[in-house]
């Protein structure tokens, strides 16, 4: 299935190339299970582009952080490949005027889901996965212990299993046909609801247990397409001094409050913060909880309508109940 889409992607990239100065996509990584972003500046390299269930990175992360300020030569644009979830990040950046729509040529990739490598490792139990075959419904995983089969659904990323927007919400061209969403808004917050069912003490214990592992490497922040302060993050400034260098739990909680609250009403649920965490802390859940709140309270979901202003960046004099 993928080779067809891959050649379609190549064809559409070729067609768009005359208007582009740069194209951001995915290429093969150091083994079959890893992809790495590629910045194409020469049309001869379009053939490097790939599209498959391993294309995990949200390329919107580069858009505001690396290229927002650059202005194109001869009105040339920056091409960027986005999955459904990634497209929401782009829209959120547009909502905040952090990037200009005209600067980008958006190649939309309707997405059936991305494989979660950690789930594969957990399921295989082996230190080394030798190969993986993915088809429409099944994954065949080969390790020294033999070949194991799993339903594809079981090994998808958490964000994919709750995906409501598999089709890019903004694009100049689509690669492949639009797909049917997996869940609706009602089911999307099941993981949050599961935590909400715990008692207050259990919730505190849960987060203490998870956040205890945090290294404060800040990768979750750097991988976030909407954490745009980057080098000026208050988690690292000494004046004002929000955090010490200690590795005590209160510091770790505080860092995650900083990240999450700065994403309230802005997080597009791309799941990158959670994916990149080397300590496998489910940090995206915190932002999902905030999204559930902003949805219920302020009827807003980030990254859907480029015209809408994120609710915490504005106010409504007439609203009641708060």
């Amino acid at each position: 299935m993928n080779s067809d889409l891959r050649s379609e992607l190549h064809k559409k990239a070729e067609q768009a190339w005359p208007d582009l100065e740069l194209l951001i996509g995915w290429q093969a990584g150091y083994d079959d299970l890893h992809t790495t972003p590629v910045f194409i500046r020469d049309s001869a390299e379009i053939s490097k582009l790939i599209w498959n269930p391993w294309c995990t990175q949200n390329l919107a992360v580069y858009v505001a952080k690396h290229f927002a300020a650059s202005s194109g030569k001869d009105d040339k644009k920056i091409g960027v490949c986005v999955k459904g979830c990634d497209s929401r990040s782009l829209i959120a950046l547009l909502q905040e005027n952090l990037v200009a729509r005209e600067r980008f040529y958006i190649i939309g990739m309707p997405c059936k889901g991305i494989v979660d490598l950690r789930k594969l490792h957990a399921l295989s139990g082996a230190a080394r996965i030798l190969s993986v075959q993915v088809n429409a419904e099944q994954v065949a995983l080969k390790s020294a212990a033999g070949v194991l089969h799993f339903p594809l659904d079981e090994v998808l990323m958490r964000k994919c299993r709750r995906c409501r927007y598999p089709n890019p919400l903004i694009h100049d061209v689509l690669v492949g046909d639009p797909l049917t969403p997996r869940t609706d808004a009602h089911e999307a917050y099941n993981d949050v609801a599961a935590i909400e069912r715990l008692s207050l003490q259990e919730r505190l214990a849960f987060w203490q247990g998870e956040l205890d592992r945090c290294l404060r490497c800040y990768a979750c922040r750097n991988a976030c397409p909407l954490c745009v302060c980057q080098d000026r993050c208050i988690a690292e400034t000494r004046d004002p001094k929000w955090l010490t260098q200690y590795m005590h739990l209160p510091e770790k909680f505080m860092f995650h409050f900083i990240h999450a609250l700065h994403l309230a009403g802005r997080c597009t649920e791309c799941g990158e913060c959670e994916r990149v965490c080397p300590m496998e802390i489910p940090v995206a859940l915190i932002k999902e909880a905030l999204n559930k709140i902003t949805l219920e309270l302020l009827d807003f979901e980030a990254g859907l309508d480029p015209q809408r202003v994120p609710p915490l960046l504005t106010f409504d004099a007439g609203e009641t109940g708060i």
Binding site: F39, Q57, Y62, L215, A219, N222, A223, V276, P278
Partner: peptide
Amino acid sequence: QEVAGQCLSCGICTFV
């Protein structure tokens, strides 16, 4: 640019 253009400056590599 070719080997690290995509780096996020996240620091994981140094922490691990």
